[in-house]
Write a protein that binds this DNA or RNA. Structure first.
Length: 418
DNA sequence: TCTGGGGTCCTAGGACCC
DNA sequence: TCTGGGGTCCTAGGACCC
């Protein structure tokens, strides 16, 4: 059996832990740049606010219902997520972290215990120690565990830990589930399925495997098998390293000058390379992209990207900084208002796996420099030591106007109880 | 006026090989 | 009029997820 443990309304729940005034109020947490609603309390969901709605479109609703609105505080959410993981580790050593607020858990070796009771104890401990509400779905496959979790969260007569183990329970759950809600079935596929007369998860489960594989793909085939209780999506407790590292941001203000784009890109390159070194990897190619505001139909649009391949894989910030600067000079066009810039590191491999070039001098790998840089920044805080290319302008920094304190990760922001 | 960010996997098609 | 067969690797684009 596989369990899916998921924190309810995660970002909102994290905010509520440290701010009781939010307990009985509708709450929204915004995306980066205070752009969209990305987390909603149940009260807000009940008001019909959809995931990802632009904030400016719901400003009236916010006023009308006295909704509390917060910028996202990833230092807080990341730290709380780690604390949840620590508690879950007390209950199983087979955990696949699937996202910041959910994980799959296996209980091999726990066949003698009652899984529902075991998971219920875990749920209560997370609530008691952290004040975070979680639901747990248990089933024979990941996709069904997702369904079970969905039932636990959405259905009034279903407990917070819910096991889908008998054929009749599975049938009943799937019969009432729109096919769009199935893990792996998104907007495009559900539209096609609906056109075929497949509206519920149960109908999808009963569809003909061969013809579905032919019409769609192996992904669809696997989803159907998973709904039948045949686990075929791998459980991976030890995820591989990232295969690409992306750092992108929208700007708080529109930008027209190349110089500022370079600074923003330098900042992104720096962050990406830290991640790269943390997972002991190196990358050989970098893509640099810039774009105007695609939503603004009245402004002149431009978007472009360029990929630069390094002669050798590396994890040195300075090499990627140089590449990013050269790249953006090539794609920059004067006369546009830029809204977003970012970079992607690709061709990632394990650090030290160098395919040398017979005719090139051995690259100076600057290992010592990078590790001193990382050490100092780890000890004294991000950005203590940084490249001057990042500049000292703040023109492009994203908006984050209503952010809560870093309650758990910064000493001078820890709550004082007097 | 105001619209996020970071990932994964799969497939088709092109280029190339013998 | 007739034009092989069997592969690999890479990339772009599309779908999905949270």
């Amino acid at each position: 059996m596989i369990a899916l443990c998921d924190v309810n309304n995660f970002y909102v729940s994290c905010e509520r832990v440290f701010n009781p005034s939010l307990w009985h109020r509708p709450v929204i947490v915004l995306s980066n740049n205070d752009g969209c609603a990305v987390a909603r309390s149940n009260e807000v969901k009940a008001l019909g606010v959809k995931m990802g709605v632009p904030f400016f479109q719901i400003k009236n609703l916010v006023k009308q219902h006295n909704i509390a609105v917060l910028s996202s505080n990833y230092a807080l959410y990341g730290d709380m997520s780690q604390r949840v993981d620590d508690i879950i580790a007390l209950y199983s050593d087979q955990v696949e972290n699937y996202s910041i607020d959910e994980c799959f858990i296996r209980f091999n070796g726990h066949e003698h215990v009652n899984l529902v009771q075991h998971a219920e104890k875990m749920r209560q401990q997370i609530w008691q120690w952290l004040g975070l509400p979680v639901c747990v779905g248990i089933a024979p496959s990941k996709t069904l565990a997702k369904v079970a979790n969905h039932c636990a969260k959405k259905l009034a007569n279903v407990p917070s830990v819910f096991k889908l183990d008998t054929e009749s329970k599975i049938q009943k759950a799937l019969k009432n589930l729109p096919v769009k809600e199935v893990w792996g079935i998104g907007r495009q596929l559900s539209k096609q399925l609906n056109d075929m007369g497949i509206a519920t998860a149960l109908q999808l489960r009963n569809a003909d495997l061969k013809s579905m594989r032919k019409r769609f793909s192996v992904v669809m085939e696997r989803t159907i098998l998973e709904l039948r209780g045949i686990a075929c999506i791998e459980f991976d407790a030890d995820p591989e390293k990232k295969k690409q590292i992306i750092c992108t941001r929208s700007f708080g203000e529109k930008i027209t000058r190349l110089e500022l784009l370079k600074e923003a890109l330098a900042y992104h390159v720096t962050r990406a390379c830290v991640t790269l070194r943390q997972q002991q990897s190196q990358a050989q190619s970098i893509t640099i992209g810039i774009r105007t505001n695609a939503f603004n139909a009245n402004s002149k649009q431009y978007s472009n990207s360029i990929t630069i391949k390094l002669p050798q894989a590396s994890c040195q910030t300075n090499l990627f900084l140089k590449a990013a600067t050269q790249g953006v000079e090539k794609i920059f066009r004067l006369g546009y208002e830029y809204k977003k810039a970012g970079i992607v590191l690709n061709d990632i491999s394990d650090a030290g796996m160098i395919q040398a070039d017979l005719f090139m001098p051995q690259a100076d790998d600057n290992k010592a420099l990078m590790s001193v840089l990382d050490d100092i920044n780890n000890r004294f805080g991000k950005g203590t030591l940084r490249s001057a290319q990042e500049g000292f302008n703040e023109d492009w920094v994203m908006k984050s106007e209503i952010k809560s304190p870093a309650y758990t990760t910064r000493f001078n922001e820890v709550i004082k109880v007097i």
